[in-house]
């Protein structure tokens, strides 16, 4: 069974919600990424999203843009990240999905990407600039490889489109909390409940909320109305704050613990 499905099943049995942590792979280094993923597992994270840095991250706010640029300065690439997951797999069984813009995947070739990623122990992929209408080839090769393709529902998604997205999505569905780019927000829109209810009527798949979530209170509130919450920029910020410090991993770990405790 795919690690993502297994995780959600276990959580459901325990009546618990998922916590998903995002970091950019290779910021500050791929070695640090390995250690951070292990630390996340220790601190109760259920699924890890590894961001693949891209030169033109148009769905990202300043925090992840800067993080992405630092990783690129470290010469991090999609293939190197896949090899990093291979290393992580020697020490951990935590579900890992890659979050990447489409061009690096297209450049590597969808078939080759899915094969290499799957072999290394990656469980699925999230591509913010690839709507299901353009994803036929990826969906086809992913299905054959038991590799999950996670698509988005947003506040502007119509009921008609939700059907298409729900059909294309495997593993879980990513609900974007707001119209906008990634990054911490103090206030989140009130239409989240409504959109998630609509989507829930169409699917039994888990729906996780991401974008803008940065503090324990938000994690607590949004866990209640969804199957999981995703935090990215706030964790990346914690990494930046501790950059160069010997106890980087430990400090980030304790921040993540403050979030996972709330779900």
């Amino acid at each position: 069974m795919n690690r993502i499905d297994l995780t959600f099943q276990t959580l459901r049995d325990k009546k618990k919600k998922a916590f998903l942590a995002f970091i950019t792979a290779g910021d500050p280094s791929l070695k640090a990424t390995e250690e951070l993923v292990l630390a996340f597992e220790r601190s109760g994270v259920d699924i890890v999203e590894l961001g693949v840095p891209f030169s033109d991250p148009l769905a990202d706010g300043p925090t992840i843009q800067a993080s992405s640029q630092r990783a690129l300065n470290n010469k991090v690439s999609l293939e190197k990240i896949i090899r990093t997951v291979e290393n992580i797999r020697k020490r951990s069984n935590i579900p890992i999905v890659l979050m990447t813009y489409y061009n690096p995947v297209f450049s590597l070739g969808e078939e080759r990407f899915v094969r290499q990623a799957k072999q290394a122990g990656v469980d699925g992929v999230i591509i913010p600039d690839l709507p299901p209408e353009e994803a036929a080839q990826l969906i086809r090769v992913a299905k054959k490889a038991d590799f999950r393709t996670i698509f988005f529902i947003s506040p502007t998604t119509t009921s008609q489109r939700m059907k298409t997205i729900v059909k294309a999505s495997t593993g879980f569905i990513y609900y974007v909390s707001l119209t906008g780019v990634t990054g911490s927000r103090s206030k989140l829109p009130s239409d989240i409940v409504h959109q998630i209810k609509k989507a829930k009527r169409l699917t039994k798949q888990p729906i996780c909320i991401g974008f803008g979530i940065s503090n324990p209170t938000q994690v607590k509130e949004l866990s209640r109305i969804s199957d999981g919450v995703i935090v990215g920029s706030a964790i990346v910020k914690a990494i930046v704050k501790n950059q160069g410090k010997a106890n980087l991993v430990r400090n980030v770990e304790s921040f993540v613990r403050s979030l996972t405790a709330q779900r």
Binding site: L58, Y102, P128, T156, V176
Partner: peptide, 20 residues
Amino acid sequence: KKGHFGEFGGRFVPETLIAL
């Protein structure tokens, strides 16, 4: 209909923009 000129073109944007 999907905005393709042969293999080129299309619509590669975040979901939020699709409805628009």
